[in-house]
Design a protein around this nucleic acid. Sequence first.
DNA 1: CTGTTAGCGCTTTCAC
DNA 2: GTGAAAGCGCTAACAG
Lengths: 328, 328
Amino acid sequence: MITRKEVADRAGVSVAVVSYVLNNRSIVKEETRQKVLAVINELGYRPNQTARSLKTRKTGQIAVLVHFVGNPFEGGLLLYIEKKAKLSNYSVFFHSFEPAREEELKNTLMGRVDGILLLGQTLSEESQAFYSLMELPIVSLMHPGVSMPNIPVVDVDWVTEMRRLIVHLREQGHDRIAFMTAGDSQNPIAYRLIAFREAMRHEGLELPETYILEGAGRFEMAFHTLTTTLTQGFDFTAIVAANDLMAVGCLAACRESGILVPYQLAIAGCEDILMSSQVSPALTAISYPRMEVGLAATELLLSLIDGDNRKTPRLEGKLSVRASTVEP
Amino acid sequence: MITRKEVADRAGVSVAVVSYVLNNRSIVKEETRQKVLAVINELGYRPNQTARSLKTRKTGQIAVLVHFVGNPFEGGLLLYIEKKAKLSNYSVFFHSFEPAREEELKNTLMGRVDGILLLGQTLSEESQAFYSLMELPIVSLMHPGVSMPNIPVVDVDWVTEMRRLIVHLREQGHDRIAFMTAGDSQNPIAYRLIAFREAMRHEGLELPETYILEGAGRFEMAFHTLTTTLTQGFDFTAIVAANDLMAVGCLAACRESGILVPYQLAIAGCEDILMSSQVSPALTAISYPRMEVGLAATELLLSLIDGDNRKTPRLEGKLSVRASTVEP
DNA sequence: CTGTTAGCGCTTTCAC
DNA sequence: GTGAAAGCGCTAACAG
């Protein structure tokens, strides 16, 4: 590996001068500067980022904890997160979060990243305290299922979004609306059920516990659960799935079971990924502003890293009404 | 920040001993070990990975260069890459590759990663030479459009896969088959066109240049291009899209233009992402073994990092035949 | 078994 | 303007 020393020797200067040149300090004589640059070019020298990080105590990396990148929704978020980070010369360290391995995560993150971006996951109290002690800023993109008082959240107002969807469904004649959720309270989309419950209450609608279906956030599980429910009999007329993968799974289950959407059952999603607009019937969905949320969350995290104290923006979705909830 | 020194002082030992304990060297007396571990626990100490990397010259990170994570296909690859990397305690440094910024990329990567995983991108000769000089192993997951002699490729045999698809289309009565591609030769899926051409030749079919449509790898562009083509008139009876996002875009264009699939035009994709099985009519597609390829490519890269010289595996796709190419 | 110590490649203060 | 040198937190000889 070519080091700064070699460049310095070859250029007949000290390592300090090479540093000055690389860090664009204008204190270097132009002539020396050119000489150093020439040698750098000649040798193809690149500074070692790790050594630099150790000294400056800045890594130029942020960790993004993902839940399941197989879900296009997360992929779409990642796209904008990385784009924004890159603009500020930050790189993204990308890690799948497993609640059972929070301990190990601390080890891998320590000294390697300048901040952490959660994608709706819940950190244990202990982890929160740890990162806080280490002065590692954390931002959560999406409301976690369990509240974490000191971690800012960038998200839409889910209650508002859910109400808008429920109002639409009522207009279509539905008042028995089921909800498909994703497991435990640790799941990144767990909060959507909480918001849905509240929205239903606001709208004065009942939500019996039997209307809560478990889809684990995945297509396959949603398909399986709804298929079972359909054969066992059901009395709701619409179903809202906490994410679009599950909504598509529900649609597939209906197709398979001969249930006509939207006539016998209306289906809606909460994200509006590309797939939702392309299935048949196309899915009505809350259109989650992935770009805005992704950019805003990353911007907030970066500003926190820089010590600024920006406030968390309010973002808004909209409703994409399509054939899965509207009889022609 | 808590350092090794503090732990050592508090435990009444030297920093070396703390190191030995952390690195599980069995040379430490059990009693001392316990004492050190107790202090580590008490203080919540975690070793700084950056400092460790500087010393060991291993970062425990691999760079994955992505093209467009908004495409679920890449997201799916990422899933398995990270899974595999994690098993070997490697983390994934995730970066969108822009050909125009290869120079900067060298700077960000230098000293930060132990290896590079390409997702079908083409590196300039100069970059290849640079990474080779730096002894940074590179593996390409997917065949790049332009060959890079010293970079191992993990992929399916595209000519075989394409031939299988073409044979299927012929069985359905198609011999005028168009291909939708993605731009320039630098595009990660550019190779699929090359393979398609060769497969067509093998099958003794003509492929006039007018049958090559430009879809830029994206849904929107595919939709736009095919819509234009459909209105201007066309004489092919089937179309193969280099990726599924474009295939879905073609399907949407047909729907919009009133062209019946598969009756007036058959459509097929090359990846078989979830979306392809859920649109109507469901898309026939080469089923790309994302898991196998993702795992194998990562494994190969990790073994190269460890200095092993494993050979590149041969992987096989299969054809998922669905309604978009088969008249009922 | 444990401690001392020399770096890893870089930045930056301080002296010249 | 430039150089010497300290030190970031860690590992691993080597000495004891």
